[in-house]
Computed example of a mutant assay.
Amino acid sequence: MHIDLTGKTALVTGSTAGIGFAIAKGLAASGAEVVVNGRAQGRVDDAVARLKQAVSGAKLRGVVGDVAQVDGGDAIVTAVPEVDILVNNAGIFEPKDFFDIPDEDWSRFFEVNVMSGVRMARAYMQGMLKRNWGRIIFISSESGLNIPTEMIHYGMTKTAQLAVSRGLAKLTRGTGVTVNAVLPGPTMSEGVETFVKDLARQNGQSEEEAAAAFVKQHRPASLLQRFASVDEIANMVVYVASQQASATNGAALRAEGGIVDTIA
Rank of each mutant, 00 (worst) to 15 (best):
M1P: 04
H2N: 14
I3R: 08
D4N: 05
T9S: 11
V12L: 00
T13P: 07
G14P: 08
G14S: 08
A17N: 03
F21C: 06
A24H: 10
K25T: 13
K25Q: 14
L27D: 10
A29D: 04
G31I: 12
A32E: 11
E33P: 11
V34H: 03
V34F: 01
V36P: 02
N37P: 05
G38I: 09
R39K: 14
R39F: 09
Q41Y: 00
R43I: 04
V44C: 07
A49P: 00
R50M: 08
R50E: 13
L51M: 00
A54V: 02
G57Y: 02
G57T: 06
A58M: 05
K59R: 14
L60I: 08
R61W: 05
R61L: 13
V63R: 04
V64W: 03
V64M: 05
V64S: 09
G65Q: 13
A68T: 03
A68W: 03
Q69P: 07
Q69A: 14
G72W: 07
T78L: 05
A79Q: 04
P81H: 07
D84S: 12
I85M: 12
V87A: 06
G91M: 01
I92M: 10
I92N: 07
P95W: 07
K96L: 15
D97G: 06
F99G: 06
D100N: 15
I101A: 14
I101L: 10
D103R: 07
S107L: 15
F110M: 01
V114C: 02
R119I: 03
M120W: 04
R122L: 00
A123I: 12
Y124A: 13
M125F: 09
G127R: 10
M128Q: 15
M128A: 15
I137H: 03
I139D: 07
N146K: 14
N146L: 15
P148N: 08
T149Q: 12
T149Y: 11
E150L: 14
H153M: 09
Y154Q: 04
G155H: 11
G155N: 13
G155Y: 06
T157Y: 03
K158Q: 01
K158G: 02
T159F: 07
A160F: 01
Q161A: 02
A163C: 09
A163P: 09
V164D: 05
A169T: 01
K170V: 07
K170M: 14
R173C: 07
V179N: 11
A181W: 00
A181V: 06
A181Y: 09
L183A: 01
L183M: 07
P184A: 09
G185Y: 01
T187L: 08
S189Y: 02
V192G: 10
E193H: 01
F195H: 06
F195M: 12
D198Q: 15
L199G: 08
L199V: 01
L199D: 02
A200M: 15
A200L: 15
R201V: 13
Q202G: 10
G204S: 12
Q205Y: 13
S206W: 12
E208R: 01
E209K: 12
A213Q: 15
A213G: 14
V215R: 02
H218D: 06
S222T: 10
S222P: 03
Q225E: 15
R226P: 05
F227I: 03
S229L: 10
N235A: 13
M236P: 01
M236H: 02
V237N: 02
V238P: 06
Y239S: 04
S242W: 03
Q244F: 11
S246L: 07
T248N: 08
A251G: 00
A252F: 14
A264K: 10
A264N: 12
A264W: 14
